[in-house]
Design a protein around this nucleic acid. Structure first.
Length: 467
RNA sequence: GCUCCCUUCGUCUAGAGGCCUAGGACACGGCCCUCUCAAGGCUGUAACACGGGUUCGAAUCCCGUAGGGAGCGCCA
């Protein structure tokens, strides 16, 4: 039997970290077993579902590279099918019409809560066949009254729910539209889903869904309920925890493979390994290695992983996303060769592509000012003269390679009787305006001879009156 | 309130009864490297929620307790 998994978000908001992690595990499992990954949009709540959310979910999945083999299917387009199944259930006596008004149900709930009981429908219309005029009935599933629903969960193990704890849930509203718990069952059945992998907030729904599947004469799929992802403070992930839409991570300069690697390690592990390529994850992923406890989202570790992935990726991989980041700063980085050198020079000193872009602006734009504190610390009359000598040397340097530049700077510093840093820092300040950059020789090499000469000359003039 | 789930360093985790003096990673501190910042190397601080069992032996199995979470909608 081929494995078939599905990711089934409801388009009532953006695709967030938790959803992406669920999608990742579904995708990994399908890919690992040569199965199919299906995307299904659960938009039965016509009020709250939006086209914008659907677009964002699909964009997010695409950016992450979690490609689906079938779909996207829309529940809103399958109402006829749901109706058909409801009619069948009704005909077989596995569902019934309930004429309770919302007010009546609210009163029932209030009384139960007052008595300290779990609020639930008491089945008052379960055996009635009459109708009540003036009220549009809802359809309820006739849940077994006795026995237990045993869920064999792939991550939690056997979980037993007593049927007496379950009530007859509504599968169709008074207006005839089907509800979530029912649609999921019909869809998973029709789409031949073999493994339902989802957040463990759904675990309490599972016995009802399984009972419906059984009533429909189907064998339940394998269920795997993943632990939740919490915010850094251990509280439920919410808007307060910063970036929430996965597209925001793209915009902030994270590599999808790094985000996915981070997310995979939340709740899953393979020995002591921390860094995984997509291929490795596909090859190594197994539901058996998923743990049961919720985990807190740690932005620091994500940043570290992103850097590790940036350092390992072929430099070409970073060209486009870095170019987009630079464009944000108004820079048109159209020279691939130069950009590639910048990537190699900067990747080990940035957590994100955005950071990399920000610290690389000077490669395209001469500094408008020099960092005051750094000038006071590094610029003296002596450095001005050293710079003048370096400048003369640069002019006569035909080989503008990092090695040649390094040799020249080293010689000038040695002749002046100072350590390399005494010259490197002022030069760095001259070309980038601040005290931080990649190694000075590499920096000047990438910048180019003409630009270096212009910037250094300008700085030398500005610092003429240094003490 | 009821049902269900969860519980190893601050965080992510390894750990399937002896290999645990509890390992790795992020973060944090120190040292090294070094033209800055990083990256890298070495190193340090830091955890089995608690209480009972079972066993020659328990982080690992069982039972309680505590804490956390989810669900209990004509939402998904």
């Amino acid at each position: 039997m081929t494995v078939r998994t599905r990711f089934a978000p409801s388009p009532t908001g953006y695709l967030h970290i938790g959803g992406l992690r669920t999608a990742l595990f579904c995708w990994l499992y399908a890919r690992r077993h040569g199965g199919k990954f299906i995307l299904r949009i659960e938009d039965t709540d016509l009020e709250r579902s939006t086209q914008e959310a659907i677009r964002q979910i699909i964009d997010g999945m695409q950016w992450a590279g979690l490609d689906h083999d079938e779909g996207p299917f829309y529940q809103s387009k399958r109402f006829a099918r749901y109706q058909e199944v409801i009619d069948g259930l009704l005909a077989e006596g596995n569902a019934y019409r309930c004429y309770c008004s919302k007010e009546e149900l609210e009163a029932l709930r209030a009384a139960q809560v007052a008595r300290g009981e779990k609020p639930r429908y008491d089945g008052r219309w379960r055996e009635r066949t009459d109708a009540r005029s003036g009220v549009d009935p809802v359809i309820r599933f006739k849940n077994p009254l006795t026995g237990a629903a045993v869920v064999e969960d792939a991550v939690h193990g056997r979980v037993v729910f007593q049927n007496s704890e379950l009530d007859d849930l509504i599968i169709a509203r008074a207006d005839g539209t089907p509800t979530y718990n029912f649609c999921v069952v019909v869809d998973d059945m029709d789409m031949n889903i073999t493994h339902v992998i989802r957040g463990d907030d759904h675990l309490p729904n599972t016995p009802r869904q399984q009972n419906m599947l059984l009533a429909l004469g189907r064998r339940p799929p394998v269920y795997a309920h993943l632990p939740m992802i919490l915010g850094a403070d251990g509280a439920k992930l919410s808007k307060r925890h910063g970036a929430v839409s996965v597209l925001q991570y793209r915009d902030e300069g994270y590599l999808p493979e790094a985000l996915l690697n981070y997310l995979a390690r939340l709740g899953w592990s393979h020995g002591d390994q921390e860094i995984f390529s997509m291929d490795e994850m596909v090859r190594l992923f197994d539901i058996a290695d998923v743990n049961k406890s919720a985990s807190a989202f740690d932005a620091e570790k994500l940043g570290w992983l992103n850097q590790q992935h940036m350092m390992r990726a072929p430099p070409d991989r970073l060209l486009e996303p870095l170019r987009r980041q630079l464009a944000q700063a108004g820079i048109d980085a159209d020279d691939d060769q130069k950009l590639g050198r910048i990537v190699v020079a900067q990747r080990e000193r940035a957590k994100t592509l955005r950071e990399m872009a920000q610290s690389s602006v000077f490669f395209y734009r001469a500094p408008q000012a020099y960092d005051d504190k750094a000038v006071r610390k590094h610029v003296t009359a002596q450095t001005v003269s050293l710079i003048a000598q370096a400048l003369r040397g640069f002019r006569g340097l035909d080989d503008w390679s990092a090695a040649a530049i390094h040799g020249l700077i080293g010689a000038v510093a040695a002749a002046g009787g100072v350590a390399l840093g005494k010259l490197a820092q002022p030069l760095r300040l001259a070309v980038c305006g601040g005290p931080v950059s990649p190694p000075i020789d590499l920096t000047l090499a990438i910048l180019g001879k003409d630009e270096t000469l212009a910037r250094v000359a300008r700085a030398a003039a500005a610092w003429q009156s240094a003490p």
